[in-house]
């Protein structure tokens, strides 16, 4: 296969002593899943993760993660080599349970924001109260002018999923915030 190009590959923002580390996340398979009520349980079985039913919650199993983004909407994330299997399994489910599964692996990139100042860096442009966001929560929101999905992976660890053409913009603001954090200003 040909070489892939990702925006910002290899870029890094770092403030020493685990204060802040921002870098591009490893690639993964991403699907947007839209499915109605009774189909949720079988869809979870097909994917391999019981789908959370509350908007804002995530569920994981092994390397796979499911985010509930809307009343009938999930983002499914899995290792790259699971793509074909997942697609085929859902195709088999379609006749019984109509749904929409769309590959959005290349639509977005992941940016990992970690460290004791991670939340401060995000607050540069994210209007949410991150103190109210539990570990394991995920939500679509806005970061300056870019729509993102924000996932809280740990107390001091977040992941931003953003459409790739918006990634530069998000990165630019995080870089500015990183400078402020470095200067403790």
């Amino acid at each position: 296969m040909l070489q892939q190009y990702r925006p910002l590959d290899g870029s890094r923002i770092a403030v020493p002593d685990s204060v802040l580390g921002i870098e591009m996340a490893d690639d993964c398979t991403r699907f947007n899943l839209r499915i109605a009520g009774t189909g949720i349980a079988p869809a979870g079985k097909v994917f391999g993760v019981t789908l959370p039913k509350v908007i804002g919650q995530t569920a994981a199993s092994g390397d796979k993660l499911a985010l509930c983004l809307g009343p009938d909407e999930w983002q499914l994330m899995a290792p790259l080599d699971e793509r074909d299997r997942i697609e085929a399994a859902f195709a088999a489910l379609y006749a019984k349970v109509p749904h929409s599964l769309v590959d959005i692996s290349h639509r977005e990139v992941g940016i990992v924001v970690e460290g004791s100042a991670a939340a401060v860096a995000l607050c540069s442009a994210c209007p949410l109260d991150l103190d109210e966001m539990p570990v394991g929560a995920a939500t679509r929101t806005i970061f300056d002018k870019a729509q993102i999905v924000l996932i809280r992976q740990g107390r001091d660890s977040f992941r931003i999923e953003v459409w790739q053409s918006f990634a530069d913009h998000v990165w630019g603001i995080l870089q500015a915030a990183g400078r402020e954090i470095t200067l403790e200003i």
Partner: peptide, 12 residues
């Protein structure tokens, strides 16, 4: 209607 919409502008 049983139909769903997904933006794929940046997928392709």
């Amino acid at each position: 209607l049983k139909v769903w919409l997904t933006s794929t502008t940046e997928q392709w």
